[in-house]
């Protein structure tokens, strides 16, 4: 069968769907942000599979790295807030 070359793409697609699902439906915010960063990293791999190395670089540096740092800083501030007022 000719499905074998598609195996990495299928695996990557399932991993992308899984991380996106966990990022959007996990109860706690911090694990959700961690899953979102993982989603960004996997998406960078997907860009490489689509022969777009420039987009992969931008996604890894901005989409996963900087957005992750922004989100984690925001979650840390929100958490400090929530512990104040249970």
């Amino acid at each position: 069968m000719t499905l074998l070359p598609l195996a990495p793409d299928v695996l990557l697609g399932v991993a992308l769907l899984f991380t996106a699902w966990r990022a959007l439906y996990t109860q706690a915010l911090f694990p959700a942000v961690v899953f979102f960063v993982a989603f960004g990293m996997l998406l960078a791999l997907a860009w490489m599979r689509l022969q777009a190395p420039d987009v992969a670089l931008a996604e890894a540096a901005i989409g996963a790295g900087l957005t992750g740092a922004l989100l984690m800083a925001a979650v840390a501030r929100l958490r400090g807030r929530d512990e104040d007022r249970p």
């Binding site: 959007l24 915010l29 959700a32 979102f36 960004g40 998406l43 777009a52 987009v55 957005t67 989100l71």
Partner: peptide, 23 residues
């Protein structure tokens, strides 16, 4: 989603999916 940060995550996922379709 109820939490605004979660909605922001959702908008980001939607944006990334549009990029994926585009490329």
């Amino acid at each position: 989603a109820a939490h605004p940060l979660r909605r922001l995550l959702a908008v980001n996922v939607m944006g990334s999916s549009v990029f994926l379709v585009l490329v």
